[in-house]
Each structure stands twice: as structure tokens, then as C-alpha cells.
């Protein structure tokens, strides 16, 4: 007779969004597009990450980071945004917390700004259009 153990379980795979202590990794999403915020949020929460806040521009992102600190583990940062762009917000976040883990979200054709962000301390970058595999791959690589 077959028992439950004979069948692979979808729950066997470790959720990517859990840290080594089993606690969910806390994410701040900074993006001026409601669509992208929701898309990243959906991908991350489905893997066990916890989206603790989102911000619609760099200024708000910086303020929320300071407010949440140290209860935030990862930031996804859009590059082109009103008020304060992602590169300036990254710079200010790194000044405030040099261990911050920031992943840049870039439109196509912004290689120079991506390069600048990496020099300023961004851990990784993802070029739009976003897809599930790309987002999870880059984000898990940057939190390890």
C-alpha cells in the first residue's frame, strides 16, 4: 500500500523567504509603479518573505527604511522615480546603514546607473520586465 511518504510533497522545498533561523525575511519595496510593487510583493510573499512596507518614491523609501530599521532585511529599489531617484535613495540608505541589503530594479538601458548603484553598495540588480525566476534568483543571491 502506498503511504503519503511515497508522494513528493510541494512543501518539501524550503521556502526561499525564510532566514537561517526560520524567520521570514522582511522586505521594503520602493517603486513608483503600483503594478511592479504588487508584482514583486506577490512573488516574494509566495516564497515566505514578509513585505513590511512599500514606498512610492526614493524619499519615502529612505524615511521608511529609517523608521523600520533594524527590523528590515532587504530593500528592492526602483531606479527611476519622482522626488528622489533610486540611486540617491540607495546612497542615503548606505550612509545610514552600511550593511543595508539593497537590490536595484532597473528598466532596460540604464546600465550606467546600475553600475553606479553597484559601486555605491547595492548588492544586486534586476532588469525589467520582471519574472518570478529572475526576481527570486537575484534576491536570494543577495541575502546569502
Amino acid at each position: 500500500m502506498k503511504t503519503k511518504q511515497d508522494f513528493p510533497s510541494i512543501n518539501q522545498k524550503e521556502a526561499l523567504g525564510k532566514g537561517p533561523d526560520g524567520r521570514a525575511i522582511r522586505v521594503l519595496i520602493v517603486d513608483d509603479s503600483m503594478f511592479v510593487t504588487k508584482q514583486i510583493g506577490q512573488i516574494l510573499t509566495s516564497e515566505g518573505f514578509e513585505v513590511v512596507a512599500s514606498a512610492a518614491d526614493g524619499q519615502e523609501g529612505l524615511e521608511k527604511y529609517k523608521e523600520l530599521y533594524p527590523n528590515v532585511d532587504l530593500v528592492t529599489m526602483d531606479i527611476t522615480m519622482p522626488r528622489m531617484d533610486g540611486v540617491s535613495a540607495l546612497e542615503k540608505i548606505m550612509e545610514f546603514d552600511n550593511k543595508a541589503c539593497v537590490v536595484m530594479i532597473s528598466a532596460l538601458g540604464k546600465q550606467d546607473l546600475v553600475k553606479k548603484s553597484l559601486l555605491l553598495g547595492a548588492r544586486n540588480y534586476i532588469v525589467k520586465p520582471l519574472d518570478r525566476t529572475k526576481v527570486l534568483e537575484r534576491i536570494t543571491a543577495s541575502i546569502r
Binding site: 509603479s33 503594478f35 511592479v36 528598466a107 532596460l108 538601458g109 525589467k128 520586465p129
Partner: peptide, 9 residues
């Protein structure tokens, strides 16, 4: 908007 961004990008 995002769709238009993707295409123009």
C-alpha cells in the same frame, strides 16, 4: 503603464 514601459523599453 507598465506594459507600455516594457514595450518602449
Amino acid at each position: 503603464t507598465e506594459l507600455a514601459n516594457m514595450i518602449t523599453g
